Measured scan of single mutants.
Amino acid sequence: KTVEVNGVKYDFDNPEQAREMAERIAKSLGLQVRLEGDTFKIE
C-alpha cells in the first residue's frame, strides 16, 4: 500500500501499517483519508 500526502508518496509493505500511518498523518493535519486503488490519499 501507498500513502500519498501533498503529492509525496510513501510505500509500505504492511497494509495495516500504511492505514494507521495515513490516519495519524491526516489527523495531525486536520485532513481526510481516502482510499483510491492501493493508495491512501490524504486530502
Results as ranks from 00 to 15, higher is better:
residue 19 R to A: 07
residue 1 K to E: 02
residue 14 N to L: 09
residue 20 E to K: 13
residue 35 L to S: 05
residue 31 L to C: 15
residue 19 R to Y: 10
residue 13 D to A: 12
residue 42 I to C: 15
residue 1 K to C: 15
residue 30 G to L: 03
residue 17 Q to C: 15
residue 25 I to W: 14
residue 31 L to H: 09
residue 36 E to T: 05
residue 8 V to H: 11
residue 17 Q to L: 13
residue 40 F to S: 06
residue 27 K to N: 11
residue 20 E to M: 12
residue 30 G to N: 07
residue 3 V to W: 02
residue 17 Q to H: 10
residue 3 V to L: 05
residue 8 V to C: 15
residue 12 F to G: 01
residue 6 N to C: 15
residue 38 D to L: 01
residue 15 P to I: 12
residue 37 G to S: 02
residue 3 V to S: 01
residue 28 S to T: 10
residue 16 E to T: 12
residue 34 R to S: 08
residue 25 I to F: 07
residue 24 R to V: 08
residue 30 G to S: 02
residue 28 S to D: 12
residue 19 R to N: 03
residue 22 A to M: 03
residue 31 L to P: 01
residue 6 N to A: 09
residue 37 G to K: 06
residue 25 I to S: 02
residue 29 L to I: 04
residue 28 S to R: 14
residue 33 V to M: 07
residue 40 F to V: 08
residue 42 I to Y: 02
residue 18 A to G: 01
residue 13 D to Q: 11
residue 6 N to R: 07
residue 8 V to F: 10
residue 16 E to K: 12
residue 39 T to W: 05
residue 26 A to I: 04
residue 42 I to M: 05
residue 29 L to Y: 05
residue 37 G to V: 02
residue 10 Y to V: 07
residue 25 I to A: 04
residue 24 R to N: 09
residue 1 K to Q: 06
residue 38 D to S: 05
residue 41 K to T: 07
residue 26 A to H: 01
residue 38 D to Y: 04
residue 34 R to C: 15
residue 27 K to D: 09
residue 33 V to Y: 10
residue 9 K to S: 09
residue 30 G to H: 06
residue 37 G to W: 02
residue 37 G to A: 04
residue 18 A to H: 01
residue 40 F to W: 14
residue 17 Q to K: 12
residue 4 E to G: 01
residue 42 I to H: 03
residue 29 L to N: 04
residue 11 D to V: 15
residue 17 Q to T: 09
residue 6 N to L: 14
residue 14 N to E: 08
residue 4 E to L: 13
residue 29 L to G: 01
residue 21 M to C: 15
residue 34 R to A: 05
residue 14 N to H: 08
residue 17 Q to I: 12
residue 1 K to W: 15
residue 26 A to F: 04
residue 29 L to K: 04
residue 41 K to E: 05
residue 9 K to D: 04
residue 26 A to W: 03
residue 24 R to E: 07
residue 21 M to D: 00
residue 43 E to P: 02
residue 35 L to E: 08
residue 34 R to I: 12
residue 34 R to Q: 08
residue 19 R to F: 08
residue 11 D to M: 14
residue 1 K to Y: 15
residue 13 D to I: 09
residue 42 I to E: 05
residue 32 Q to E: 12
residue 4 E to V: 13
residue 25 I to G: 00
residue 22 A to C: 09
residue 1 K to I: 12
residue 8 V to S: 06
residue 19 R to T: 01
residue 43 E to K: 05
residue 24 R to W: 11
residue 29 L to E: 03
residue 22 A to E: 00
residue 33 V to A: 05
residue 32 Q to C: 15
residue 42 I to T: 05
residue 43 E to N: 07
residue 28 S to K: 14
residue 23 E to D: 11
residue 13 D to S: 11
residue 42 I to K: 02
residue 41 K to H: 14
residue 28 S to V: 10
residue 1 K to V: 12
residue 3 V to F: 03
residue 11 D to W: 15
residue 29 L to W: 03
residue 25 I to N: 00
residue 30 G to V: 00
residue 34 R to M: 08
residue 37 G to E: 08
residue 16 E to M: 11
residue 28 S to L: 14
residue 31 L to G: 12
residue 2 T to Q: 10
residue 28 S to P: 00
residue 18 A to N: 01
residue 23 E to H: 12
residue 33 V to H: 01
residue 20 E to P: 00
residue 24 R to P: 00
residue 40 F to E: 04
residue 24 R to Y: 10
residue 32 Q to P: 09
residue 37 G to L: 03
residue 27 K to R: 12
residue 33 V to F: 08
residue 9 K to C: 15
residue 38 D to R: 03
residue 28 S to A: 14
residue 8 V to T: 09
residue 31 L to V: 13
residue 39 T to Y: 06
residue 16 E to L: 11
residue 37 G to Q: 03
residue 19 R to D: 00
residue 28 S to C: 15
residue 2 T to S: 14
residue 19 R to K: 12
residue 4 E to Y: 10
residue 12 F to V: 04
residue 18 A to W: 06
residue 41 K to M: 12
residue 26 A to L: 06
residue 6 N to S: 06
residue 7 G to M: 04
residue 16 E to F: 11
residue 28 S to H: 14
residue 32 Q to Y: 08
residue 2 T to L: 07
residue 29 L to T: 05
residue 23 E to S: 08
residue 1 K to L: 11
residue 24 R to C: 15
residue 18 A to P: 00
residue 28 S to N: 10
residue 35 L to I: 13
residue 3 V to T: 00
residue 10 Y to Q: 03
residue 6 N to W: 13
residue 34 R to H: 10
residue 5 V to K: 03
residue 8 V to Q: 11
residue 11 D to K: 14
residue 40 F to K: 04
residue 13 D to L: 10
residue 18 A to S: 03
residue 23 E to K: 07
residue 9 K to I: 10
residue 16 E to H: 10
residue 31 L to M: 13
residue 20 E to L: 11
residue 43 E to R: 03
residue 43 E to D: 11
residue 9 K to L: 10
residue 17 Q to Y: 08
residue 30 G to R: 03
residue 10 Y to I: 11
